[in-house]
Nucleic acid binder design. Structure first.
Length: 389
DNA sequence: AGCTCCGGTACTTTACACAT
DNA sequence: ATGTGTAAAGTACCGGAGCT
């Protein structure tokens, strides 16, 4: 364009200043001007072509980069989808665990004695993806824990010296000792805090009514809970730092101590050698149910009364038996009956009163059915028949 | 010897069942 | 509805064991 502008003044100059010359050479001038114009135009086209070429090359490069970038994104997406699927499966496993805990199935995982776990259940557990993925990292920690605990146990209280083979089977992944953690990651730190919180917040069950339940809570753990024995071994007394928990634990330990002592020294209680823990528990449960002389007569004791009975050393050698000699009545009932007798003795009775008294004095096999607590007692009796084996 | 931790126990408070 | 008795849970204190 600049070149064409350059030519036009020349033309006007030639035509304007020298009209004679222009009239003499019109054809020659126009041809040369046309040539120059064409060359100029061609040059411009060439320039445009080169510009287009570079732009096409640039576009090709851009497209290639876009393609590579998209491929990378797709690859990342695919990997992310795989990971999500894996996590989803893991979540399904966790959900199954939660359902298991809620339905009571999961408690079998905590059955440290291994008495209640069938081969099929063991196989199912070992097939769990989540558990298996957790297993490796947890296993190393647990080995360190077991080593530390087994050494610590040598110097601890006699009660804490329960069979190490039971402890070795305690493999619940949630309750590794914080001190045994070797990872220094934030995740491991969070887990430590979580575990310590859970241990610090554990509260022994106040609603238990039988020695069997107390022993289960201590040795095996209740549904979805760690066993008290495991808490003791992993955290020492620190998990029960609250005064209420300490006191309650001390009372429960009177019962547990007796079970352990019966198992260790059966001859001390005129019981056969090699007695199992289950049988030791049954002996103490029988004592609670009627093999006792609480306040001078056989009484079906509460756990608190059993604690008093043992703590005050009110027990006698005759109380320890695998046979339940008498399924006694609760102290509350006995006291109430005694009070009624006293009031009736002050008011010499009618014939109906005599009958009532006689029926109380000789309670028949169904006498407790009229009791206000008969459903509970029925459950207890069922438990007793189970204990009698 | 002094300190801390822990278990044991007396005492108090609370909850519940039963009688009036 | 209120009073009473019993049992259980919780609190406070004491004493022993272990550590510095």
């Amino acid at each position: 364009m600049a070149s064409s502008n350059d030519h036009s003044p020349q033309n006007s100059d030639v035509e304007g200043t020298n009209p004679e010359l222009s009239t003499n050479l019109p054809s020659e001038f126009s041809a040369s001007a046309f040539q120059a114009l064409m060359i100029d135009q061609l040059a411009k086209i060439q320039e445009q072509n080169e510009g287009l070429k570079t732009r096409i090359v640039q576009l090709e490069q851009d497209q290639r980069e876009f393609y590579i970038d998209t491929c990378k994104k797709l690859e990342r997406g695919a990997r992310s989808a795989d990971k999500s699927a894996h996590e989803l499966n893991a979540m399904k496993e966790v959900f199954k665990e939660i359902v298991g805990v809620m339905s009571g199935e999961r408690v079998r995982f905590l059955d440290h004695s291994g008495e209640n776990v069938t081969t099929q259940e063991a196989a199912n557990i070992s097939e769990s993806l989540l558990l298996s993925s957790n297993h490796e990292s947890v296993r190393r920690r647990q080995e360190a824990v077991m080593y530390r605990d087994s050494r610590a146990l040598d110097t601890l209280h006699v009660l804490k010296q329960e069979d190490t083979d039971i402890w070795s089977r305690l493999n619940h992944p949630d309750f590794a000792a914080p001190s045994a953690q070797t990872e220094s990651s934030d995740y491991a730190g969070d887990q430590n805090e979580n575990i310590q919180d859970r241990a610090a917040n554990y509260k022994m069950n106040r609603l238990l009514k039988t020695v069997t339940d107390v022993a289960r809570e201590y040795f095996e753990g209740l549904q979805g809970q760690p066993s008290v024995m495991a808490l003791e071994r992993r955290f020492g007394p620190s998990w029960r730092c609250r005064p209420s928990e300490r006191s309650f634990f001390a009372k429960r330990m009177q019962i547990i101590n007796r079970i352990v002592d019966i198992k260790k020294h059966p001859s001390k209680y005129n019981l056969p050698d090699g007695i199992t823990r289950k049988k030791a528990i049954r002996v103490v449960e029988n004592m609670r149910l009627g093999n006792n002389s609480f306040h001078g007569q056989a009484t079906r004791m509460t756990l608190n009364q059993l604690y008093i009975y043992l703590a005050k050393k009110m027990d006698t050698p005759n109380d320890y038996s695998l046979q339940l000699l008498e399924f006694a009545r609760p102290r509350r009932d006995l006291l109430l009956e005694k009070r009624n007798e006293d009031t009736q003795s002050t008011q010499p009775g009618s014939s109906s009163n005599d009958l009532e008294e006689e029926s109380r004095a000789n309670p028949g096999p169904n006498s407790e059915e009229n009791d206000s607590q008969s459903p509970r007692r029925e459950a207890l009796e069922n438990a007793v028949t189970g204990l009698r084996v």
